[in-house]
């Protein structure tokens, strides 16, 4: 996918989370956003998801500018992308299966049986078929997040956005979720991922953005970023997050 940021700005009151950020990425498959907490990586992802409106500048994806000021066009855009949240955000009143079929039926116009079929294929594939009829309260964190990912990919999105998908998980569940994301990536699913899992970022991404201080502090391929770059702020961050790895 082609991603262009054109002087993109987002402020929260006095705080300039993103300040005139520009960037052009021609053909990226797996883009990873890393950086310090509160540095703006989640805000950037939410802008790309069409969940926040910028205070200035623009965002162009695959040569289509996102029309932030037409709610109708934003909704059409959101229908074409998949979003996975840190806290899973499954609908608590629906079973795992219904969580996947509801958007298929109500938003994408599938009939019930076709939606069920699609959802069951996904659950089967990711070894979640036994959980199909359980409500989220009865599932483990890892299962919830994997079902949330199924819900996001069931609509066959153009690309998948993941906002710290493993940050709320116990360590034992982290790898099952990362395995699933890796599997999707290997199948050619385009994705943009915010994460603190540096090992995974390095292994799974083809481009990394280091977001902080209102902009992009560093960027490049995993090798560029982890081995070659010399920015003091990035080094300090790596020293902290990799201290116990």
């Amino acid at each position: 996918m082609k991603l262009e940021l054109d002087n993109l700005s987002k402020h929260f009151g006095e705080l300039k989370v993103l300040d005139r950020v520009s960037l052009t990425l021609e053909d990226v498959h797996a883009l990873v956003l890393i950086g310090p907490s509160g540095g703006g990586k989640t805000t950037l992802l939410r802008l790309i998801a069409g969940l926040e409106k910028p205070d200035g500048g623009g965002l162009i994806i695959n040569d289509h500018p996102i029309e932030f000021f037409s709610e109708e066009s934003l909704r059409e855009y959101r229908k074409r992308i998949g979003m996975v949240f840190q806290a899973y955000n499954l609908f608590p009143h629906l079973t795992a299966l219904q969580n996947i079929t509801l958007p298929l039926v109500k938003v994408h116009g599938y009939n019930e049986s076709k939606a069920l079929e699609e959802a069951l294929i996904l659950l089967e594939r990711f070894h979640l078929a036994d959980q199909a009829h359980k409500k989220p309260a009865m599932l483990s964190g890892g299962q919830k997040q994997r079902i949330a990912i199924c819900r996001a990919v069931a609509i066959r999105p153009e690309f998948l956005l993941l906002d710290e998908p493993t940050s709320a998980l116990d360590p034992e569940y982290t790898s099952e979720v990362l395995d699933l994301i890796g599997e999707l990536r290997d199948e050619g699913m385009r994705l943009i991922l915010v994460t603190h899992e540096m090992g995974f970022a390095r292994q799974a991404s083809d481009y990394i953005l280091f977001v902080g201080d209102g902009g992009l502090i560093a960027q490049g391929t995993p090798i560029d970023l982890f081995e070659k770059q010399r920015d003091e702020r990035v080094n300090r961050f790596f020293n902290k997050v990799l201290k116990y790895n």
């Binding site: 909704r75 229908k79 979003m83």
Partner: peptide
């Protein structure tokens, strides 16, 4: 708010969000 936002991210209209996500809960 997260439930509304999730529905929004999935492409639900505000009316559908009330009907299928908020009211049943």
């Amino acid at each position: 708010e997260t439930q509304r936002e999730t529905a929004k991210s999935l492409g639900f209209s505000p009316f559908q969000t009330y009907l299928y996500v908020i009211f049943p809960q």
